[in-house]
Computed example of a mutant assay.
Amino acid sequence: MDGDRTSTLPGAHGVRSYVAGFVARLTERHRLPLDYTAASLRLVDLVVDGLRRDQPERTRIEPVLWGLGAYTGEVMVRRVGGRWIDFDAGQRALFGQPVGIRMPDGRYWNPVGKVINRFEDGSEESVQRFYLTLHGRVGRRALL
């Protein structure tokens, strides 16, 4: 992503309200049940697959992909205990995004990048499977 486009995306402090607005617009227009559950991430996979079918240039639909990625991250925040962070320069270079998720176990995740990968590479890059790799990590950490 170029500097101009990423500079217009919200930082970590603004992602939650950005996602709320994105979900409101998407559910109003398309009646998608985006309810911040793990099951709703299957819908993210399906929406991205639908976008791929039309074979648009990624730059044309990047705001939608970013919104779906931010929604995926917000599910991680609400369900698995992650928190939004602003990536530092090294992380931005690695992940190609301005924000991401830091999990309670200290690992960093890039849900926006995962959605973009789904668009570019197809079903082998499942957003729902991405989320399911996190399952149970909060509970194990709490036991340490």
Rank of each mutant, 00 (worst) to 15 (best):
106 G>V: 02
84 W>L: 00
144 L>Q: 12
67 G>L: 01
105 D>R: 04
70 A>N: 09
9 L>M: 12
8 T>D: 05
26 L>G: 01
135 H>N: 09
143 L>C: 08
85 I>G: 03
34 L>G: 00
65 L>F: 08
26 L>M: 08
1 M>S: 05
137 R>W: 08
101 I>K: 00
49 D>M: 11
81 G>L: 02
74 E>N: 02
65 L>P: 00
136 G>F: 15
7 S>W: 14
99 V>G: 03
141 R>A: 10
96 G>L: 00
22 F>G: 03
73 G>V: 01
131 Y>G: 03
26 L>R: 06
93 A>T: 14
31 R>M: 08
2 D>V: 13
7 S>N: 12
25 R>H: 12
27 T>F: 01
51 L>Q: 13
80 V>T: 08
100 G>A: 04
91 Q>D: 03
103 M>D: 03
91 Q>W: 06
112 V>L: 06
77 V>I: 03
113 G>P: 00
91 Q>A: 05
140 R>H: 13
46 L>R: 15
33 P>R: 07
74 E>I: 07
35 D>H: 04
29 R>K: 04
32 L>I: 12
139 G>P: 03
4 D>T: 14
84 W>I: 01
1 M>A: 04
102 R>F: 10
41 L>Y: 13
79 R>P: 06
116 I>A: 15
1 M>E: 01
13 H>F: 10
127 V>R: 02
63 P>E: 13
90 G>C: 08
125 E>P: 08
38 A>Y: 14
5 R>H: 11
58 R>G: 06
30 H>K: 06
109 W>N: 05
46 L>T: 15
123 S>E: 12
2 D>F: 11
89 A>C: 09
27 T>M: 02
13 H>D: 11
56 P>D: 00
34 L>D: 00
20 A>F: 12
73 G>R: 00
77 V>H: 02
23 V>T: 02
17 S>V: 15
117 N>R: 15
119 F>N: 01
5 R>F: 15
3 G>S: 13
39 A>H: 12
121 D>S: 14
34 L>C: 02
16 R>C: 05
86 D>P: 07
138 V>Q: 09
31 R>W: 06
9 L>R: 12
144 L>E: 13
100 G>S: 04
95 F>L: 01
42 R>K: 13
24 A>K: 06
92 R>S: 06
13 H>N: 10
71 Y>E: 00
81 G>V: 01
5 R>K: 10
103 M>T: 10
40 S>V: 06
102 R>Q: 15
123 S>D: 08
11 G>D: 08
14 G>M: 06
135 H>P: 02
86 D>Q: 10
48 V>P: 04
90 G>K: 07
72 T>M: 03
79 R>I: 03
64 V>H: 09
138 V>Y: 14
85 I>R: 05
142 A>T: 11
82 G>P: 12
126 S>C: 05
72 T>R: 05
111 P>A: 02
69 G>I: 03
96 G>T: 01
